[in-house]
């Protein structure tokens, strides 16, 4: 019998597997980005596209779109692996269950959070943000989407295997995402206004670190209960 690989290498294999699967089936992870673009398209259409007003509205529109599309994407996180029994094998593999789920969450963030963060500066540009604001916007969405993916992992774990998980998932995850929304929108507004956004970015970073510490444990507990 071969010895078990270390937690780190097991997690790395899970990460690589999820990325490989996603590359072979691009539709799943392109959907949240497309949804993000659609939500952002709706805001100027619902208002009149006066540049000054759009620039004022940009942080709100951007962050509501980020929140909604990350909740939408959360639905994919554990569903397939829960259905075909992969998660049960993870649970009995002798590896750290939280570690393996964290690898899945990391893959999920690379596939959904990172694209959102990369598209966000373009979205901010289209809302009339100056080019100097783009690094701040990118940093804010990078940090914020990390928190959102981690919260999403907890929500996906709690609703794993339920029939009508969609609306319930948003009810569970969106209230928890309020701090990320507040600090993210604030950092974006400061960046677009040409001011120093570092305080809000530090707070976003603190939320992300907090999520990194506790969310995998909560997600593992939730998924384990649903497998019992």
């Amino acid at each position: 019998m071969t010895p078990l690989p270390s937690t780190f290498s097991a997690a790395a294999r899970v990460l690589r597997r999820d990325l490989t699967l996603a590359v072979r089936r691009a539709g799943d992870w392109l959907q949240p980005v497309a949804f993000f673009v659609i939500v952002l398209l709706l805001f100027p259409l619902a208002l009149d596209p006066e540049p000054a007003r759009l620039r004022l509205l940009a942080p709100a529109a951007l962050w509501i779109a980020v929140l909604l599309s990350s909740v939408l994407a959360t639905d994919f996180l554990f569903r397939e692996d829960g259905r075909d029994g992969t998660l049960e094998l993870f649970a009995v593999s002798g590896q750290s269950f939280a570690g393996l789920l964290f690898a899945k969450t990391a893959a999920h963030w690379l596939l959904t959070g990172l694209p959102l963060a990369l598209v966000s500066p373009l979205a901010a540009l289209s809302f009339g943000a100056p080019a100097a604001a783009l690094p701040g916007v990118l940093a804010a969405v990078l940090l914020g989407s990390l928190s959102l993916s981690l919260l999403g992992a907890v929500g996906a774990g709690l609703t794993l295997g339920l029939r009508r998980a969609g609306a319930l998932l948003s009810l569970l995850v969106l209230p928890l995402a309020i701090p990320t929304l507040i600090f993210g929108a604030r950092a974006t507004a400061l960046a677009i206004g040409g001011e120093d956004a570092s305080a809000a970015l530090y707070l976003l970073g603190a939320l992300a670190v907090f999520g990194l510490t506790l969310a995998p444990l909560a997600a593992a507990a939730a998924v384990r209960i649903s497998l019992e």
Binding site: V154, G157, L158, L162
Partner: peptide
């Protein structure tokens, strides 16, 4: 939060699982 807790509890048929899953939500 309360509505989410009640919704999650109501969505799970198995009582033991409903208890334990909603407990994780309450702690989160």
């Amino acid at each position: 939060f309360f509505l989410g807790y009640l919704g999650l509890r109501g969505a799970i048929d198995d009582p033991t699982r409903a208890d334990r899953t909603s407990a994780v939500l309450a702690i989160v």
